[in-house]
């Protein structure tokens, strides 16, 4: 049951994302750019922090 709810929730989020992408893509190119760009900025920044940990464990491994 819990899995089903999770599935429905994720499917709804996905549907909303597609809907937003289609609407903003058609009418508002800058809005679309913001949606994509902000997601990208957050994820890349997060990835760079993960990279920091990798670099750190690598350098510890060398010593």
């Amino acid at each position: 049951m819990g899995k089903l709810f999770k599935f429905i929730g994720l499917a709804a989020a996905l549907a909303l994302a597609i809907f937003l992408a289609v609407v903003t893509g058609d009418f508002g190119a800058w809005y679309f750019a913001w949606l994509v760009g902000t997601t990208m900025i957050v994820l890349i920044a997060s990835a760079s922090a993960v990279m920091f940990d990798t670099q750190e464990s690598n350098s510890k491994g060398e010593v």
Binding site: G37, I41, V42, S48, D53
Partner: peptide, 21 residues
């Protein structure tokens, strides 16, 4: 150091975007 890393990467993309806009 971790905050600096995250913020600097966050900032370089954002500052370029601000200039474009």
């Amino acid at each position: 150091a971790r905050s600096f890393r995250l913020a600097s990467v966050f900032g370089i993309i954002s500052s370029l975007a601000v200039v474009t806009l």
